[in-house]
Design a protein around this nucleic acid. Sequence first.
RNA 1: GGGCCUGUAGCGCAGUUGGGAGCGCGCUUCAAUCGCACUGAAGAGGUCGGGGGUUCGAAUCCCCCCAGGUCCA
Length: 912
Amino acid sequence: MQKEMSGNQIRQQFIDFFVNKGHTAVRSASLVPAGDKTLLFTNAGMVQFKDIFLGTDKRSYTRACDSQKCMRVAGKHNDLDDVGRDDSHHTFFEMLGNWSFGDYYKEEAISWAWELLTEVWKLDKDKLWTTCFQDDRGEIQPDSEAYEIWKKQPGINPEHVLFFGRKENFWEMADTGPCGPCSEIHIDLGPERCNKKNVPGHICRVNGDCSRYMELWNLVFIQYNRLNAETLVPLSQQFVDTGMGFERIVSVLQKTDSNYKTDLFSKMMSTIRQIAGTNLEQMHQNFTPYRVIADHARAASFLIADGVVPGNIGRNYVCRMIIRRAVRFGQQIGIKKPFMDKVAESVIESYKDAYPELAQMRSSILNAISWEENRFNKTLDNGIAQLNEIITLMKENRQTIVDGETCFDLYSTHGLPLEITFDIVREYGFDVDRNGFQKAAETHRIVSGGGKAMGQMGGEDADIYAMYLDHLKDQGLLTSDGVRYNPYDHHPIPSKLILLIHDKENVSEINEGDEAEVITDSTNFYLEMGGQVSDTGTIQGIGSDFLFEVTSIRRPCAGLIIHQGRVLKGNAKTGSEVMVAVDGNRRHDIMRNHTATHLLHAALHQVIGNQARQAGSLVAPDRLRFDFNSNQALTSEQIAEIEDIVNQKILDAIPVTTQIENLDDAIQEGVTALFNEKYGNEVRVVRIGLDQDDVISAELCGGTHVSNTSEIGLFMILSESSVATGIRRIEAVSGTVANVLSRKKISELREMSAILNVPMDGVLDRVDELQDQNHKAQKEITDLRNEIALKDFSEKMNQVQKIQDINFLGIHIPDVNPDTLRMMADKFRDENENAVAIFSTISDEKVVLIATVKESVIKRGIKAGDIVSSASSVVGGKGGGRPTMAQGGGKEIDKIPEALKAAEAYVKGKIN
RNA sequence: GGGCCUGUAGCGCAGUUGGGAGCGCGCUUCAAUCGCACUGAAGAGGUCGGGGGUUCGAAUCCCCCCAGGUCCA
């Protein structure tokens, strides 16, 4: 009996097997799909090769194999809530795949798959079943080719080769685009694995819905291009795209009845048991929480390693959600303290050899998970406080069921999950309305989500341009590599017009005023990539007055680079000799900003640590923008420190060099690679440093850079702000823009110093001093005014009228603010028996009225609010307040005496 | 991308149909003590996140923006 293989060995055997068959082993792409806004996460092995199928990109190899990190947690196939309930679902998983790009086809794909499973891995041939495509609608040809190939595999049971229809065996990427039939390999795990034994009439079979037969491997044969719902046309190139669920095959080979019982998960599981204080038997009796925690800890670790930190938006939110969900399941098995970082540690241990980024990002992973766990606890505390208020109210109202909307509000607004709400109210003998909750959740989903459909796949017009490209190659105008592209030297280069497009038509001539697309046989215009914007410039005729303004650049398909713009002068025909001229000043500004961005990145690491990973970047001629992972705002000291570091590196005049290296070597060496970029096996490394031992920054980067940091001139940070939870943004300028800006700021300072009549470095102190003086003066003015007004007021107190036993005073007091007026009213009320008063003044060219009434008088039906109302209606306004004190006003200043009389009349009327 | 909640003194918070901006802790000074802690008295400190609008009057109502939280895509 052969010793059982570890998961890591199985993965390696797969790769080795296909490398021996001439395949290039490719690294797993990031979980964040590069340049693909239609996808939240990489969810299949083909994602990193999509552009090859679409014809917009090409690679140096035609056979590849890999183990691809995948996440299936959002979108149409969101089975997050099912993860943990069974033994085969995962949020994160690995997909093993082998690929042919216009190389081998069905014959090899099928026989190699059979060979690996039955010869290398020695699976029982009688237990294997395979399926081929036969159209249930009878429109597409059946894949009898695959059928015949399967039947001749050594040792196969011919009765185990079956046909199925479109649902199972026809693969399509989207509504249009590359597609084709597929063949699946299923394994019979034995009758005891059926989970439908109790269902009457159930028969176990392939593609039945019980768990006895399991799909192992899907071999997709891409041979058609779907133009619309009815039309398929054959592709000129054929592709093989296969995918085998790694956890499944490990489970089969290790003869376990659960993916979660393989050695891939054993370290995590024992860690969880250790924390929960349970044994193996207890775990298997209540397996769900353990599966959830292990799955989610694994997913979160891989996500964070790819730069997806927990947050409140998009991918980041998914990361948060799975961490929080795992924590809740932890609570279910009695774990009270934060624990997820310990599970994550086991994940790193189990996977670091196959995925070194886990070890590299170890501290970031553990920190981010702990941080999120703590934040979740804070959120829960908050939500529970809200809930307690609700419980108090319910007790008063003698309610015992928390209605669905309230439960959902606690969840959606305060982050308190329904189950926790239930746990808490249960202690009071209350219940929750689960149906109401679901209904509210559904409403919320519709209100907040619905509108946005997935974007287009891209490459819609790739076919047309691919056709042009083929044509140009046939004519010998282009080599097989397409347009010669070298953006790293930006001096004008001679070239030839080989294709002109005007109004979407191929034309032989373009004329003054035409908007057109111009293709030359070579170009050095930079094509937007890695955050650096495209170049602009001109294309000029040699020996003619032709002048074309290039406003943007694009690459509709691999090998074809298009200058878009307008003919400013003259005309040109295809075949003309031209000079392709990048706007050099603009390019130089961009280069300065790009190198400055690398220096900024390095300085950030120095100041706040390596967790400040790049999360996005824009390099334009007039500014640069840099987003990075961080949980808190930078202090002004940190910003200054970063600026100083960058500017010091500029003063140090450090050389910037670029070098083409092997991707694995570069990663090994610790070169910074960005999670959302796509890299081939050959990568360009940009280094800033005096020599090999003194490298300040080394990044994988296709952008253009200055050759020495001193060219940057000056670097200034303009702002630091928040983009989303856990992500901050720095905006900065360098070079000419920084010069202009600093000159402007200094001249402003100079003007200020002239106005304040102090030296420039004394401006700050002077402003401080002035502000202080102003504050004091304002206060003194207020005090003096009050003093004067009160003195004045005392004199006017003798104007008090006796209305029966009431002391009434209705006077106008000029030059006081409403606050002082109120103070006087208080004073009058306090110092007089049965006091009733109304005062007026003018503030902001409007009438202000204040009335006051002593408690003893209120009982007799006289309220301050009513007095003010009667007076303010005279001056064209309104008023109100409390019985003892009320305010009002109006706009008609000249009617003030009349208003005061009206108030007096009101009081008299009430008394008599 | 969208829904909801929050933003008031250094910190934690109250502010109930729109009408005097407050509480606790902390801070300053004084008293008491050999000194500290405790205690007592007095006091400083606020663009009520920012900007518009409605109103005689906005922390309070409406709109926009910013920041934080939370949920859905």
